[in-house]
């Protein structure tokens, strides 16, 4: 594979191949948890944290356990187990040591183990053959990209509550129309920044 600069990976994760708007990963939370800015912030914080952690853990597992034992076919199952265990562990540690953080992030943590964005970043790391540092950077960058879009989306949705629109568009269709506009903006990064 071509050696990619870390900055390139960062920009790809945050903007060019944004998880929500370009790659369509993690959409359940995108339409589900963006009704107000506060919960969107909490969810994004938890996602950044878990994405960075699971990129690290799954890289170590894949490179030092599965490949030496020729068990790459178990990759998918073991990644899921790792993510689920990690989410449990994070929940446990945060609840015990940082109660304030737990109160704001706590309810979002269980949602994350079934979030396709987290498993997606782990699988993409394997697919792109990223090394350790690259995997960690890509995981964190994807989480940041997720946060950028979640915050934009929730802020727009909060304001659009006061707008008069037909009742059959309110809710999900409206969320998708807003996403269309945001996605149009993000798609243009493909051409603006030729990487």
């Amino acid at each position: 594979m071509v050696e990619k600069a870390l900055f390139t990976i960062l920009m790809e994760g945050v903007f060019i191949k944004n998880f929500l708007l370009i790659q369509f990963l993690g959409l359940c939370s995108f339409v589900g948890v963006t009704k107000d800015v506060k919960s969107a912030t909490g969810m994004s914080g938890a996602v950044i944290f878990v994405m960075a952690m699971s990129s690290t853990a799954s890289y170590l597992l894949y490179t030092y356990v599965l490949i030496p034992m020729n068990m790459e076919f178990l990759g998918l199952i073991s990644f899921i187990v790792v993510i689920a265990a990690l989410v449990q562990l994070v929940e446990f540690v945060v609840r015990k040591n940082i109660p304030a953080l737990y109160r704001s992030l706590g309810i979002y943590l269980p949602l994350i183990s079934t979030n396709c964005a987290v498993l997606g970043v782990v699988l993409l790391n394997v697919l792109y053959e990223y090394n350790f540092i690259q995997s960690v950077v890509y995981g964190t960058a994807s989480g940041l990209g997720y946060m950028v879009v979640m915050l934009m989306m929730s802020a727009i949705r909060e304001r659009s509550l006061l707008v008069h629109i037909p009742s059959f568009i309110r809710g999900l269709p409206q969320a998708f129309f807003i996403a269309t506009m945001l996605s149009l903006a993000f798609v243009n990064y493909f051409w603006v920044i030729p990487l």
């Binding site: 059959f168 269709p173 998708f176 996605s183 149009l184």
Partner: peptide, 25 residues
């Protein structure tokens, strides 16, 4: 061409959902 790019997906599903909601109402 936009329709086969990501925005097209959001636009299509948003429109279809609006139609489904309208029929339900």
């Amino acid at each position: 061409t936009t329709m086969i790019l990501p925005p097209g997906a959001f636009l299509t599903i948003g429109t279809l959902m609006a139609i489904v909601n309208y029929k339900k109402a």
